[in-house]
């Protein structure tokens, strides 16, 4: 196995491959910022999973109301107060962790897959394939993300699936660009040409020699982007183009509280804080990862 022809002892291909996972773990231990941010994000994931047991009023997440308790300010009984239908805001915020963050995760993963394939193909083969693929990404990137997602979400069926598709269609070109530039810089190297000369199948060269160089920047970008997608997704919800009532989506909750914001501040403040918290954690994580793994690059945010 070690002597297989497509793993030559080339230093330039080596870095990300042999122990990417273990190295990442070691980095985690050395950087408290990464540990804290990743830890808190995991905690939020846990909250999303365990929401039915953690929330004092799980029924308020799915349409049940309690009009007798409407518009109560935060108290011991209702930590974040109640909304105009008497629903416990705290419970709904906990359940909210199941929507925005999940959408963002799915969007980023799907975009990563699509973008990576497109970017690898463009960067590795070059020529007219590259030219066409990159012009297509240019077109997508020429429409600001939120707007393209808004237009798509508007014409697609309303709901979580529509938003997710709209966002994924919006996001993949970023990764295509990123992977393409990495792939193009590796593609011309001598050991890749050697592999080609040996007649190795393209997909093998791509996976084992071209892709590894992109892993670190992709990881950094993806963690930052989860924050970005959460913000855009919540914006769509706020405009009524995402999750539909009574889904306890944070963006939607802020929108529904809009008319009461001046008087019953708690209804919209806490869901907004939740969005901000998750987005900020993603940004901090992305920053810390970049500082650790990829210090040369400057952020896009």
């Amino acid at each position: 196995m070690t002597a297989s022809p497509d793993s030559p002892a080339s230093p330039s291909a080596a870095p990300a491959r042999p122990s990417a996972a273990r190295r990442t773990l070691a980095e985690l231990r050395r950087s408290p910022a990464i540990a804290v941010a990743a830890g808190l994000l995991l905690l939020i994931a846990l909250v999303a999973l365990l929401a039915p047991w953690l929330a004092p009023h799980p029924e308020h997440a799915s349409g049940a109301t309690d009009t007798g308790q409407a518009l109560r300010p935060p108290s011991a009984a209702h930590w974040f107060g109640t909304d105009e239908l008497g629903r416990d805001v705290f419970s709904r915020v906990l359940y909210g962790a199941r929507f925005g963050p999940t959408i963002a995760l799915v969007v980023v993963v799907v975009s990563l897959l699509v973008g990576t394939v497109v970017g690898l193909v463009a960067g590795y083969f070059g020529g007219w394939i590259d030219e066409i693929l990159m012009r297509v990404t240019d077109v997508f990137l020429a429409v600001p993300a939120l707007l393209l997602a808004l237009a798509l979400a508007a014409v697609l069926p309303r709901g979580l699936v529509g938003v997710t598709i709209a966002l994924a269609v919006t996001w993949w070109p970023w990764y295509a660009r990123l992977v393409r530039s990495e792939a193009a810089s590796v593609a011309g190297r001598r050991h890749i040409e050697a592999c080609r000369a040996l007649g190795l199948p393209h997909w093998r060269i791509l996976l084992r020699h071209v892709l590894p160089g992109s892993v670190t920047p992709l990881l950094v970008q993806a963690s930052t982007d989860i924050g970005g997608v959460i913000l855009v997704a919540s914006g769509l919800s706020f405009l009524g183009l995402g999750a539909q009532s009574p889904t306890p989506d944070w963006g939607l909750m802020v929108q529904q509280s809009q008319n009461r914001f001046m008087t019953e501040w708690w209804i919209g403040t806490f869901p907004g804080l939740a969005i901000m918290l998750v987005a900020a954690l993603c940004y901090v994580l992305g920053d810390a990862l970049r500082d650790r793994l990829d210090p040369r690059r400057t952020p896009r945010l």
């Binding site: 914006g235 706020f238 809009q258 907004g272 945010l301």
Partner: peptide
């Protein structure tokens, strides 16, 4: 970090209030 991660519509509501 805070500035970039605040949902704008929420910030708008806060400042408006």
């Amino acid at each position: 970090i805070v500035g970039a991660s605040m949902p704008v519509f929420w910030l708008a509501l806060l400042l408006q209030t």
